[in-house]
């Protein structure tokens, strides 16, 4: 696969390591009432869609950017690549 890095242009996927669902960026608030329930869901209940999936990749053999990549898990088509640090977080 080729990942079109927002800063560095197209790079081979072998330069990256994969983490998983980009929802990992939305870490719950530790002080919320049901924090342990929220953390359990955050950590263990992730989407695994057949189709478009937002996921985290790390440019380990490159500039060490964490990227949020929108990839179709059926075709590997990548429709969007963004820098994680520039994205809004929902939690």
């Amino acid at each position: 696969m080729i990942i079109n890095h927002p800063l560095l242009g197209p790079r081979d996927a072998s330069e990256f390591t994969y983490l998983g669902d980009a929802n990992l960026m939305n870490r719950p608030d530790w002080l919320s009432e049901n924090a342990s329930e929220q953390f359990y869901e955050y950590l263990y209940l992730r989407e695994n869609p057949a189709g478009e999936h937002c996921e985290l990749w790390y440019h380990e053999q490159g500039d060490r950017s964490w990227l949020v990549i929108t990839r179709n898990t059926l075709t590997n088509e990548i429709s969007k690549v963004e820098l994680a640090r520039e994205l809004e977080r929902s939690a």
């Binding site: 960026m25 985290l56 790390y58 950017s65 964490w66 820098l83 994680a84 640090r85 520039e86």
Partner: peptide
Amino acid sequence: AVSVFRHLEFCAQCLWP
């Protein structure tokens, strides 16, 4: 050494930018 560094970058960029 490698996985901790990766984890720290994850924390810095993805959790607390």
